[in-house]
Design a binder for these strands. Structure first.
Lengths: 139, 139
DNA sequence: TATTATTGCTTGCAAATTGCAAGTGCAAAT
DNA sequence: ATTTGCACTTGCAATTTGCAAGCAATAATA
């Protein structure tokens, strides 16, 4: 992935420099909502990311401090990827994307349940989920 | 721009299929916050989009119904690009991106003012700005 | 202990996308 | 009648993506 200089000082532009692509937020989604944490986990996702692209995205996310690479407790052959406070703070954005998508796409029933919960108590939902995710990274 | 089929049914994935790139949201930003509405306007933005990329993004946004192409009241040589309800509904996402960026980047003073306003009354800010944008597209 | 999986990548290569520069066609101004 | 402005299009090189195969380091199995 290109580790280019930023294109402007605009907050949107700076943000897109970090996660403005088709894959990065899907990896964050997998970690946030589906408890995925290994290279193999991410490869298995429905969208079918290519292995080299996954590697480059994981590197980019690590450089941007959105994820951390740790040794896996189960095995030395595995690598554990973990969210950071910086990526947990993306949750409000990701929730809003869900709400927008809910308005303009057909959403599968089980995800719709979560979206409804987020819609009927957005702040509560974000707060609760944030705390849960923070617990996971409490060293 | 590739008008591919969607990669999965995931709401995040579907959304990224539409605006998951480095440029699309910048065009929406220009229209929302800086009242830009013509091809030439977008070309002038700080990030320096290439003319062919701009053309392909405008086409993509139009196909996704995030913008509409209208005749410009001032001249037949000009084209007027306008937001739609669908893109106005992206405002909450864009606001949250601003808030995230505010936490992790240095933000220029004048934009910081707007961000503060959004932070101290998020719902109000979004509601007011949404109504203002809707007025612009009231036929 | 030797062999076979599993895991997390890397490498090679073709195809697609991006970025840059130049050009084109129509409308408007001079 | 000529020049300028506007919205693109085109050509081409460079970069990025996607697919398939390969590989080194554990870990599991015989």
């Amino acid at each position: 992935m290109r580790t280019d200089r930023k294109r402007s000082d605009c907050p949107i532009s700076c943000s897109l420099d970090i996660f403005g692509d088709k894959w990065s937020l899907l990896i964050i989604r997998d970690m946030m909502f589906f408890n995925k944490s290994t290279y193999g986990d991410f490869l298995k996702s429905a969208e079918g990311i290519a292995t080299n692209i996954l590697a480059s995205r994981l590197l980019g996310l690590e450089e941007s401090k959105l994820i951390e690479k740790l040794e896996h407790p189960d095995s030395k052959a595995k690598v554990l990827y973990r969210l950071t406070q910086k990526s947990i703070d993306l949750l409000p954005i990701i929730v809003e994307i869900h709400l927008w998508a809910d308005k303009y796409f057909e959403i599968h029933a089980d995800i719709k349940t979560m979206i409804k919960e987020a819609k009927n108590g957005k702040d509560k939902f974000i707060k609760t989920m944030t705390q849960q995710l923070k617990r996971q990274i409490a060293t």
